[in-house]
Amino acid sequence: MDFNGSDTLPGPRTEDQLPHTAQAAAKIVIVGGFGVGKTTMVGSVSEIRPLTTEETMTQAGIGIDDNYGSESKTATTVAMDFGRISITDQLVLYLFGTPGQQRFWFLWNGLFEGALGAVVLVDTRRLEVSFDVMGRLEERGVPFVVAINSFPDAPRYPIAELRRALDLSADIPMVECDVRRRASSRDVLLTLVRFLHSLALTGSAG
């Protein structure tokens, strides 16, 4: 990439620049298996055109990773879509959507440790693709809500039945959504933030 020639440098459009008063940013992660609507959700609520950041993970130790690629493969790229919502002149919220092999996301330093919480998107046609990530969030103590993205041809189960299938306790919010709609995605985020607020009230650790 040519970094000279400032005229052609990519960057935020003027209207996408944050004010100088922006003091701090927080993040929320949107997780779930392949094709559940993570990118769509980030795009529908973001105030900026969604962007992508990536990181290269290289194989550090000896031994063969039989779950990933061929034996000669020693590196993998983890890419994340993200978007932004300005909350106040001082406070900014970023949303990160994490595609690809879920186990690699958890190597991204600070992504889950620092996130306020997570939205787990599920598709009832393939519930099981979101099982793995739920276990990982639970192990790390990352608070999350479950959003059922309603695809037209997806089987519809009562929430109580889904809660049983996902083995979630009664306090974890579950909502239906259509992440293509901004208001629906926003309501999912509100559900998460209200849930985090309720944890603050009950004094539970995050």
């Binding site: 919502i85 106040t88 406070l91 919220l93 607020h197």
Partner: peptide, 21 residues
Amino acid sequence: APIVRQAVPDRSLLEAVMHGL
């Protein structure tokens, strides 16, 4: 510096985020 999750969540921060959303 970023705002990161605390063991005891920051209620006023979460309220600000709710109102913003």
